[in-house]
Design a protein around this nucleic acid. Structure first.
Lengths: 338, 338
DNA sequence: TTGTAGGCGTTATCAC
DNA sequence: GTGATAACGCCTACAA
């Protein structure tokens, strides 16, 4: 009734051998209906639960995947994890989560631990401070599928799932131009991460395509927090020709920018438009709801899971898939002039 | 260099036996410094990684814990998971996450899967629609530690970590009274969950202790979304004597309430105060920042992890610990009259 | 249809 | 100090 029951316990109780019990439990055809029924019943009665660990050791498949993100309580990441979990759980996989706190050392540590735990795959977003790639190659050497989502590094053999950040930057900027803005600033992040560089590129191209001269004073690389938004606006507004719009690579920075602009008495959206990035939940709930770019994190998670599954299925061939999802511009109050 | 290396491979390369390798790797004292060094070096060279699965099977400890929550992308839960992960990772544990979507069937399913996976413990918040308790008893029967955080059920042998919801309700209500409100409504949740009942009890007691008559028309049980806030306010404001404040058991409901009140032209906080529950990130970023009750989810996660660890350490004695954390009232603009 | 035996990768208990 | 062997719980040829 109690404690851990094994197939041997069932076998003993029924005066058969463990092999028979195993077969009955696994619906092996070569077994009499009678014994199967008997085994099933006693298994249930003894509250038998299959030890997946033993199975994993035998089969070499743990049915666990590791997910590594900077912080799991960042909505973007937790939404991705949600997507991964919902895609993989029905197939019998479990999701093990790890946090890097944006530290490369933790990233390496996590990956090693996951490899030790014999995960069947690793899905991750690389940490901001990550520079090496050898730990990724370790994963590949062990023939463990590796998938990068959102933040990627260029590593041969790794599949990636991202949104089209270039397009997102382009669309956001174009939208601001269509609202009548012409002096558009861009608050960016560390260009060591492709996502930020690509958003910037899209921004720049949109300007050029619309006959607006690119002004490098309008581009500020900064951290991703509210305070960075305050400071950036302070700096921008002291320029000889201050901007009339901001496209920010981060919702938090955009929020800070809006706060500072309000403080300075700038009227949003009439005199100044703002658009952020990520569609953090709070953007929708601001009195002036914030325009932003939705990265469809749940979808991204599901897609990452699917790419992993393909890789598992085709374990013989090395596939390196690059999935690029379309971003979704959410036009809200902070960039809608009447 | 590549593929999975076992201690046998190392043994073969060194012309020793696997036992020796194992000992060297585990810093067993009865081994010569020379062989140890040799083993260590070749292990590194061959990129050996210990197979935790085999270790787990042998030792009966998987070093995995399961965490079961309704949705992992709800900030409250992801913050708890963050706390759990941060407390447990340094000790070599991995966190496996599961979502119930508030369905009891999924909860049962998740628990069984985790039991099959031989987790060393299960930390969870019970789903709203959960009525049975037999699946919890199953866990206990297997001698797997079970810890409930936040939402608990009364099950013998299960430790719990919660905040003092009664106190939280009391404090929030008292605060509203101190702001000069006297007709205080309460938007509650399903009383099948203790947390909601306790918040209500605290609310009621605070009224009584301050000489305010309890009015049952001011209490509405409702779902936890924005729309529920809209509807509740509509209903409340048609009462003969409409309230002048709301204590809501949910930030989302409180947000809906505020939106509806604004729409009706009610001035917050001067004519009407509102306080929510959970300290969701968005509450801080509203133009009128929302007062709320912080449940210290990261702390709650860490504490849950600690309780689990104690249980593991004292596996011989059955401990049933009840930890109650103090809530933290966040007084912000929506309840601060000038 | 069922039993026997070996192995997945480790560690622990004996020996030597 | 090191080697041989059994055991963790399960599955699966191969035999019977």
């Amino acid at each position: 009734m109690n404690e851990k029951t094994t197939i041997y316990d069932i076998a003993k109780a029924l005066n058969v051998t463990a092999a028979t019990v195993s077969r009955a439990l696994n619906n092996n055809p070569k077994i009499s209906a009678a014994t199967r029924k008997l085994v099933m019943e006693t298994a249930a009665k003894m509250n038998y639960k299959q030890n997946k660990l033993a199975l994993a050791l035998k089969s070499g498949k743990s049915n666990n995947v590791g997910v590594v993100v900077p912080y799991i309580d960042r909505n973007f990441f937790s939404a991705i994890i949600r997507g991964i979990e919902e895609e993989l759980y029905p197939l019998g996989y479990h999701v093990i989560i790890c946090q890097t706190h944006e530290q490369e050392s933790a990233e390496i540590d996590n990956i090693n631990a996951l490899l030790n735990a014999q995960v069947d795959g690793i899905l991750m977003s690389v940490s901001k401070l990550s520079t090496q790639t050898s730990h990724f190659e370790h994963v590949l050497n062990k023939n463990v599928p590796l998938v990068f989502f959102d933040r990627k590094k260029d590593v041969k053999g790794v599949s990636t799932v991202t949104i089209d950040d270039y397009q997102a930057g382009y669309n956001a900027t174009k939208h601001l131009i269509e609202q009548g803005c012409s002096k558009i600033a861009h608050l960016s992040g560390d260009w060591a991460l492709e996502i930020y560089k690509n958003r910037y590129k899209g921004y720049k191209q949109a300007l050029l395509d619309n006959g607006i001269t690119f002004n490098k004073d309008y581009v500020i690389k900064t951290k991703s927090d509210i305070k960075a938004g305050h400071k950036s606006v302070e700096k921008l507004m002291t320029l000889e020709t201050p901007p009339d719009a901001i496209f920010s690579s981060s919702d938090y920075v955009a929020l800070g920018a809006i706060q500072q602009l309000k403080k300075m008495g700038v009227k949003i959206p009439d005199d100044f438009c703002v658009i952020g990035f990520s569609n953090e939940p709070f953007t929708k709930f601001m009195e002036l709801s914030m325009s932003t770019v939705d990265q469809l994190p749940v979808e991204m998670g599901k897609m990452s899971a699917k790419v992993f599954l393909e890789q598992v299925k085709e374990s013989n061939v090395k596939i390196e898939k690059k999935v690029v999802l379309a971003p979704n511009l959410k036009i809200r109050a902070t960039s809608t002039k009447k």
